[in-house]
Design a protein around this nucleic acid. Structure first.
Lengths: 207, 207
DNA sequence: CGTTTATAACTGACCGGTAAGTTAGTTATA
DNA sequence: TATAACTAACTTACCGGTCAGTTATAAACG
């Protein structure tokens, strides 16, 4: 190891380090406003070195999104599928789990990036559509359908109901990333999740 | 009028024309990716002429947002305040009105712009926060509070309830502007509005 | 009524800063 | 001494913003 301040000999970690630095900066300043020189500095190497690991800026962005998405997703699937009890009990847990993700991880910032840049980079949007929405929605729809089948819920449209369920969580994410940083008053995402779960259970309860 | 293909002598209309062109391009490509030369071409004049009417690109952006917001807002206020009947009847109308705005106006695209650019241009975000959210939220909260006072609704937190109410509409706007253009399946915003209104009324109904 | 003059509206060509992407060369390790 | 990892310096293209000059209109004048 010697005194090698210039970190060498660990190139396997390099892409991850670059992705981490890029995530922080993309989240902070957006895609266009993030300079590769800054990403490089933060990752502790030169801009040219980034090009050793990523084709171009776009590929780096894609990598960041991919990394953040896959690392933050498996758990939801587990949570929703493992639980075999009454849906009435799962729903509040699920919403509170989402709230914790919104409060404690960069997930909402990622979503904001996707929202803002997917017109310019449709591949990003399609990736998110496929990997997050395409996996998450069916999961939740199945849950609602199960609630109906088990006689807990009235017979509503599962697709629309899922939108009603997660809409406020999207709102919370947008609020946290867009309006709180510029002086909007703090929103208690977990309280919203609990409250919304309560509303939804009242709304869905079979007569 | 003669054959003056070069339009002159109507400078009062010019700012509006420029704003219209800019709106279309900002909505299509985002702020950073929109070239002033393109705005100029679309508005039928030269880039330099834009600077006769707007301080800089940022002021133009601000003008676009301001224009779109004020032209699309007064009606909501009217709708919510004029109606003196039971809140139970107003709520579905209100949601369906929002749905029509989302489907038939560039409002969701504006919102998307604000979401995407407010980190880089906090003034934009604050303007939206003040003019749209600062006016819309209290209006809706008062409506919920009235529903409670009139004995139609159970005693819920009006602030959180309003978030539950409009969350799905935000979701619809995001879906329309972000995911439909890149191959996401069409979402029937009005159906969602009706369905969500139904859920909310069930959720809020006093026992 | 034609001609000059004043000026508002507008433009083409340019400037300067910026940042993505490249390359030729350097350094550390095996 | 071979080579993988890395970098400083460069090239290139773009685009926001400016400015000196041009054109269309209207007012002033003879």
């Amino acid at each position: 190891m010697s005194k090698a301040a210039k970190q060498r000999r660990a190139p396997a970690e390099r892409p991850k380090e670059i992705l981490e630095a890029a995530l922080a900066l993309f989240v902070e300043k957006g895609f266009a406003a993030t300079r590769l020189d800054d990403v490089a500095e933060r990752a502790g190497l030169s801009k040219a070195a980034i090009y050793l690991y990523f084709e171009d800026k776009m590929a780096l962005f894609q990598g960041v999104i991919r990394q953040a998405v896959i690392s933050n997703f498996g758990t939801v699937e587990a949570l929703a599928q493992a639980h075999r009890g009454p849906v009435t009990e799962i729903l509040p847990r699920l919403l509170e789990f989402m709230a914790s993700r919104i409060e404690d991880t960069p997930l909402p910032s990622i979503a904001k990036l996707v929202i803002g840049e997917s017109r310019a980079f449709p591949e990003i949007g399609r990736f998110y559509l496929k990997e997050v929405i395409g996996r998450g929605l069916p999961l939740l729809e199945a849950l609602i359908a199960r609630g109906i089948a088990q006689g807990e819920f009235r017979a509503v449209d599962p697709g629309l109901t899922v939108r009603s369920l997660i809409g406020p969580m999207l709102l919370a994410g947008v609020w946290k990333t867009v309006f709180e940083p510029i002086g909007g008053e703090r929103l208690d995402t977990r309280a919203l999740a609990r409250h919304h779960a309560d509303l939804m259970l009242h709304a869905l309860r079979a007569p």
